[in-house]
Write a protein that binds this DNA or RNA. Structure first.
Length: 273
DNA sequence: ACCTGACCTCGTCT
DNA sequence: AAGACGAGGTCAG
């Protein structure tokens, strides 16, 4: 497992690197990580999905030539198991934005609505509780730079606080059922739903299809997936998703993450700062 | 059922 | 230095 590659792959945002240590917040937990950390720690084991049979995942995905090459370039990149509520809000806030922007918004949200804690000689803000965001005014949320997403966040937090959205239930449901439920939330479309499912609800067949993945598929997989449109519509999303899972198999979500990481690195896009 | 345009805000780039 | 541009989408018409 490679810490830098894993953290800098666009799946988590509330992390910063100081010297050779990564400091981050996952829900109510503050984590400090370095490349030689203790993997026996329970939180770490859970967070990094060490329960997954990565050898098998690697073997499955290596059937695809492109992916085999990309996995050799980033052999230590993993998908993380995030705190669901933090992940849910993070990707609602991500729409039509770039990574530095998303990171700023989440930091401001945590600072305004999260509990302050001291650990490792530093000050942290935990990720806000659903109740806190549900009861916040849209105006105060707006101050965190969310723009039109402020109202999404408020409603989404209310859904969790009321129990309309229940993460442990979603985990037990099938991928498609869980996705449909998430898409009922104002501000969540299929792409955001897939991010939440893949990064926090153990649905490894979820494949977030964004502009980048679309470009990647056009560039390297024009034979496998004939993509006509420039943007993704409701319909093309499902069609494409089916083909992708057919091609990559049950760990298609991992495939997406490797391809995304690879392409962003090639274009030297920004990660966490 | 599609398809198109508007949308908040903040980095960058010019 | 001010203004334009685009960024890991979603909603409404």
């Amino acid at each position: 497992m490679n810490l830098d590659d894993t953290i800098n792959s666009g799946q988590i945002f509330l992390w910063k690197k100081i010297n050779s240590n990564w400091y981050g917040v996952n829900g109510k937990k503050i984590l400090i990580l370095r490349q030689d950390f203790d993997i026996k720690n329970n939180d770490i084991h859970e967070f990094f999905r060490f329960g997954d049979d990565f050898q098998r995942i690697k073997k499955e995905l290596s059937k695809d030539k492109m992916l085999k090459k990309v996995m050799e370039r980033f052999p230590g990149m993993r998908i993380l198991r995030q705190d669901p509520f933090q992940c849910y809000i993070s990707f609602i806030v991500s729409s039509n934005s770039n990574i530095p922007n998303i990171q700023t918004r989440l930091r401001k949200l945590s600072r305004s609505f999260g509990e302050k804690k001291k650990k490792y000689g530093q000050e942290f803000f935990l990720f806000p509780e659903p109740e806190k965001l549900a009861n916040a005014s849209v105006n105060d949320i707006l101050k965190c730079g969310l723009g039109y997403r402020a109202k999404y966040v408020k409603k989404a937090a209310i859904a969790v606080n009321e129990g309309t959205i229940n993460f442990s239930s979603l985990k037990k449901q099938s991928y498609l059922d869980a996705r449909d439920d998430l898409c009922q939330v104002f501000g969540i479309g299929k792409k955001v739903a897939d991010c939440i499912l893949l990064f926090s609800l153990d649905k490894l067949e979820a494949v977030p299809l964004d502009r980048w993945v679309l470009r990647i598929l056009q560039k390297y997989y024009s034979k496998e997936f004939k993509i006509k449109t420039k943007s993704i519509t409701e319909k093309t999303y499902d069609e494409l998703h089916d083909k992708i899972v057919d091609h990559f198999g049950e760990y298609a979500g991992y495939a997406q993450q490797f391809l995304f990481k690879n392409e962003r690195e090639s274009f030297e896009k920004k990660w966490l700062g």
